[in-house]
Structure formats: structure tokens, C-alpha cells
Design a protein around this nucleic acid. Structure first.
Lengths: 137, 137
DNA sequence: ATTACTGCAAAGCATTTGCAGACTG
DNA sequence: CAGTCTGCAAATGCTTTGCAGTAAT
């Protein structure tokens, strides 16, 4: 079992459950829901109550360690490690897979969007369509 | 009381509750939640059960009469009449006001985003920041 | 030892569903 | 009249909260 002893995020008390959550997120290959994270923790032979996982995620988000992603037309939030890149996601309409898009087409546009009535601080762009497996064409 | 007798959307059976919902949306100056719509209906001296409003909204969305908007970090969906314009919304971080942005900076970019692994059909862009009233600067 | 964290149970909230009676065309 | 729609109640699913015991520094 891999460890997360090193590079533990500053300002966060280390507990067994928090280590479990971080470990799962470090090895996740896609954003996970709180429930997913719970299951993964159990697969690793550990345990953490769902409400605890929510509390840990909330803390991690506040500390900037984790990013919370809300997908349109889904009532389940997913989380992933904050890799400090500006990212956007594409959601497959068929299998609901979430694909990260590394480059942001908005970046150079934001200045133009500034409006007398609204001070834009950030944005969230979500694409939808079909992933390679599901594309009907 | 204003009427919605004229231009009733095709293919939708007219009922008292559906007229109430449409009337409210026609006079709304911002996107409304199902609960908001219920309250407005009551203010108009009519009534409609919340679950009925949800069913009506679902129908209207399916028929293209209404657009459903999900805002990040809010667990409440809001609805507005489909005015057949491509729109994006800016959400105020302070007062949660939703401001519509009429022009879409993405339009000419979508073709470039197409990816071998993902066939993009549409997008949803949400801006956040502060509205005129709340901007701390 | 003190303070923060977790397990657990229960509550909250938006939304959905089942069903019988009411309404529409 | 036949089929659809609505009121109502209850369920659902995600997320949050309260509290008492447990663990971390």
C-alpha cells in the first residue's frame, strides 16, 4: 500500500481518514464522488464514514488541496486533486464519462467579457457531446 | 390579470396549472426555481402543487419552451422561457444574482476544441464574480 | 489534557414517483 | 368517454448536522 506521508498538505491535521481520502484521490484516474471515495477506501481495507468523507472533502476544498466539480444535470458532485491547472471538463451524454480538457479556450477572452455591471473573477466551462466510445457516428 | 391565451405552444395540452406556470415565466425578469414559480402562482391568486410544477417544467423543457439552468455550487435548478438565443450566465458570488450574458465568446472556438476523443455538441459557460451592487472595489 | 475529528443517526432539501380522483378535448 | 393531468403523500438520493465518544498533538 502506498503512503502519503511525504508532502502532506500544510495546515491540515493528519488523521487516518484524511490520509485515506488523499491516497484515493492521488491514485484516481478520474474525478470521484464522495461515495466513490468511500468505496475505494473500503477496497483499500480501510474505512471512513460517508459524512466524514464529505467533511474532509469540504476541508480539502477550502484549503485548496482538492477541486470540486459540479456537472450539469447531475446531482452528484465529484472531486479531484487540485493540480493547479486551469481545467475544463467534457461530459459524455451517453456514458456520463468526464473528460478533462487541458487547454482553456476562454483564457484570452475573459477581458473582453468584462461588463460595466459585472466584475468577472472566473469561469466554468463545460462541454458536452460524445466520447470516443459512445460517438454514434 | 394578463392572459396567455394567444400563442399557446403547440403540442401541449392547455390546463390551468400550465397556464399559470407559463404566465409566471413570461413575466419573470430572472430565471426562477420551481419553488419560486409556485410562490408566484400563489401571488397571482392561483395554485399549483410543487410536484406538478416540476412535471410541467420537465414537459416544457422537453418541448423546448423552457430552458433549465443549473448553477455551480447551487443545488437548485432555475428555469426561464426559451427565447432561442444562445446564452450564458454570470453568477454573483455575493448576492447569488444571475445575470444573463447575451453574446457568446465561445462560438467561434468550439471547432478548435474538437478532439479526436470527444465529439463536442454543445457547451455551458458560467462566469462568476461580483455584480454591480456587490463589487467590493 | 485540550482541542479537533469521527462514527453514527437523523435531519434537510430539491426533486421524483405512485396512485386515485379530477379535468380536458 | 377515454386518456391525460393534478393533488397529495411518501419516497429518493445527495449532502449536512448534532452529539457523544475517540484520537491527535
Amino acid at each position: 500500500m502506498k503512503e502519503v506521508q511525504n508532502d502532506w498538505p500544510a495546515g491540515i491535521k493528519k488523521t487516518r481518514q484524511r490520509e485515506s481520502v488523499l491516497l484515493v484521490l492521488e491514485h484516481a484516474e478520474k474525478p470521484l464522488s464522495a461515495t466513490d471515495i468511500c468505496s475505494e477506501i473500503e477496497k483499500n481495507g480501510e474505512s471512513a464514514w460517508l459524512s466524514t468523507v464529505y467533511r474532509i472533502l469540504e476541508l480539502f476544498v477550502k484549503k485548496g488541496v482538492v477541486v470540486k466539480i459540479s456537472v450539469l444535470n447531475s446531482d452528484t458532485a465529484v472531486y479531484e486533486l487540485n493540480r493547479f491547472q486551469h481545467k475544463h471538463y467534457a461530459v459524455c451524454l451517453s456514458c456520463r464519462k468526464i473528460v478533462a480538457m487541458d487547454n482553456c479556450p476562454m483564457e484570452r477572452f475573459i477581458p473582453k467579457i468584462q461588463d460595466a455591471d459585472f466584475h468577472v473573477l472566473g469561469h466554468n466551462l463545460e462541454l458536452y457531446g460524445y466520447c470516443g466510445n459512445c460517438d454514434p457516428k
